[in-house]
Design a protein around this nucleic acid. Sequence first.
DNA 1: ATGCCCGATGCCAAAATGGCATCACCTGGA
DNA 2: TCCAGGTGATGCCATTTTGGCATCGGGCAT
Lengths: 309, 309
Amino acid sequence: MHAVVLRYIDQVARFGSIRRAAETLNIASSAVNRQILKLEAAIGTPLFERVGNGVRPTPAGEYVIRHARDTLADWQRTRTNISALSGNIHGEVRVGTIPSAMISILPKALDSLAQAHPNLKFRVLDMAPSDHAEEMRAGRPDVAVLFIDRRYRDYEIVAQLGAKVGVIMRPDHPLAKRSQLTLTECSSYPVTMLDDPWLLFESTLQNEFIRSGAELNTVLRTNSMTLMKQAISSGMGLGFFTPVGFLDEIRTGQLVHVPLTEHDLAATDIGLFVHRGRARSPSVQLLVRALSDEFVRAASDLRNAPTKA
Amino acid sequence: MHAVVLRYIDQVARFGSIRRAAETLNIASSAVNRQILKLEAAIGTPLFERVGNGVRPTPAGEYVIRHARDTLADWQRTRTNISALSGNIHGEVRVGTIPSAMISILPKALDSLAQAHPNLKFRVLDMAPSDHAEEMRAGRPDVAVLFIDRRYRDYEIVAQLGAKVGVIMRPDHPLAKRSQLTLTECSSYPVTMLDDPWLLFESTLQNEFIRSGAELNTVLRTNSMTLMKQAISSGMGLGFFTPVGFLDEIRTGQLVHVPLTEHDLAATDIGLFVHRGRARSPSVQLLVRALSDEFVRAASDLRNAPTKA
DNA sequence: ATGCCCGATGCCAAAATGGCATCACCTGGA
DNA sequence: TCCAGGTGATGCCATTTTGGCATCGGGCAT
């Protein structure tokens, strides 16, 4: 369908080297080189700046590279859509999400889909929020579960969940009966912290949390969510999370969630984002529907087993 | 840059005939035919259904055709953006608009741009509102001035203007001193009507207006806005419009605008729509900025010379 | 200074594309 | 009913495009 030069410039840009791009493309470097030279001649502007040890895109090149990648990605989606016409839902859905959603909401949704559609693939992006923001701005994820940010204009929020950040603890903890808490009230008790606390909050919220966090008695610091859960369950300390990651434990009374009063933290909601242009793709629709269901279930869980009576 | 087959299938779909497409492409029909056959073989699905007197796209074909057109259009925009890097703002901006905006807002904005950027081209689409909706849904216009409709999710509303539909008349008309009017109050006086009244209103509003309009004493019915203006100015009858098309006349006191009380009609606002994905294109930005300025100016005009004291 | 890796280029083979003539088929009108 | 004029498909050939290989000249790091 598409001219080879699209793949060529994509790879060349990725490696910053014509020869290495040619290598991964299983093709002679001269062929790749010539395609680029021809394209530059056709456009009338250099697309890559020749530096000693390779090439680097010019501003014009950036445009062309983006166009090439957009085109190839759109072609991939087109193929997927065509294949879906004959009932074969396959292809890959890219999902960006916060860790909380990876614990319960996302796995349940994926599980319910995986059974019915064995050919459906998912790519879940677990990364730093700054990269999330970058991905969202670039429009790469098809679906995302993130703290609500209206600046992602290419995405529509199709569901949301009031998920105040709060304190997770055992029901027999001294603070478990409170209806709300401040960070300073927690400072007299041992707490556990995700080793990458910025994973949980938007950049504006990080600062306050980290600032207050510095005064906290952090008895455990880990990047393992599993260990974290075990530690909190065994009474090792408090945890700071939205209730979303602990729906099951809260419902069964195993753990308790008490919201924090700090306004900036409490104001955060989790949203289900769908890329506007791809919302009609069958595979995306399936996932969105499954996630919506989980959002509804989570909301009802939070209502029935409120953060504290 | 792009494989010829993109242009081929575009034209074939446009004409519903391989031979005629080949003709307009100045190429042998066999070449076009073969490209399509090859593509179908590569995808594994027929893209066109062969009917006796030509071809018709299959559902899979519709997807591919749309992809091809999107790709070519995006490539065009990419070329434009690259050219803009060297300070040469050119290219074509597609604008969809209601007639009212064509009278004052749009011409002024275009005029101010045409002087500074002689290479900038505009394509203004004047058509039935159903086609407008279709165009907007297909995401073809880059910029649009339309009655606000939140369903156009690919577009962002960057400016709006409270523009209640009302009655336009000479200041010495018996109704000119009123602060508001109903359609029935107008029925005792001669009125003028645009021959295509649906051009002015969203489909949901059309019905009421036309229904009431049937009882009006329509002394003049024309599709010429110029004649319309002359007729109202010479006292031939009332006109039903937003004030937007009559800003100059209202400001100078030549004409008067009295809003209608009918709720559905009065609730309409005019919005400046920009396609989300193309808002950053220099040419689009220029036009949006110029139109925004005109929106502001129009809003101030409406405030200073209110529809009636 | 000397390898080493880079992109550019000349030469040739291979592949893709296009043009022409022709075939088989469908459709609409005598 | 049949014929005329249209359609897409296909075989054959010329042209164009693309790719592979060897090689050149030039930066860059050791």
